[in-house]
Amino acid sequence: MTEEIIIAGFGGQGVLSMGKILAYSGVMENKEVSWMPSYGPEMRGGTANVTVIISDERISSPIISSYDTAIILNQQSMDKFEKSVKPGGILIYDPNGITRHPERKDINIYTIEATDEASKMGLTKVFNMIILGGFLKLKPIVHAEYIRKGLEKSLPKRHHNMIPENEKAIDRGKEIIEARQLLN
């Protein structure tokens, strides 16, 4: 099993930390992982993205140009990465703020209203965990117990009291993700 994922959105949406939690969870489950961020000017206000690879085998290149799954959280990222999903792959996006919806016919497309859901839950910070939940519903590549360990590893100790909220958000994400276009 090898899963190649790109997560892309605005800096501050929790793109890099979502990738980090996923990567750490993979490590905890004793899988091979790589986490390759965009850094620098992109992180200072513009767009941020991270490539996460989780595999049972040694990972050759941490830098790739096509992905099994793209998680897209703003319009710039949609413009940049819609075309990079492998045929038959998955594109997940939050329609909030998206003006041009994906047009590809050869991929599976899902939406997740995470921005709305996070504000309904009164916890905008767990936005990224709702998205992560949606992804894990479709691709259960790491088990829930390891996700918890991944959260413990990547959150600073002073925020460990937030872990139950994060887990709740992950569960909520699993419930609210919707198929927009499915291949047969």
Partner: peptide, 10 residues
């Protein structure tokens, strides 16, 4: 290089 420095692996 910047990629090896910035990326995370086991």
């Amino acid at each position: 290089d910047g990629a090896i420095g910035q990326m995370m692996e086991k």
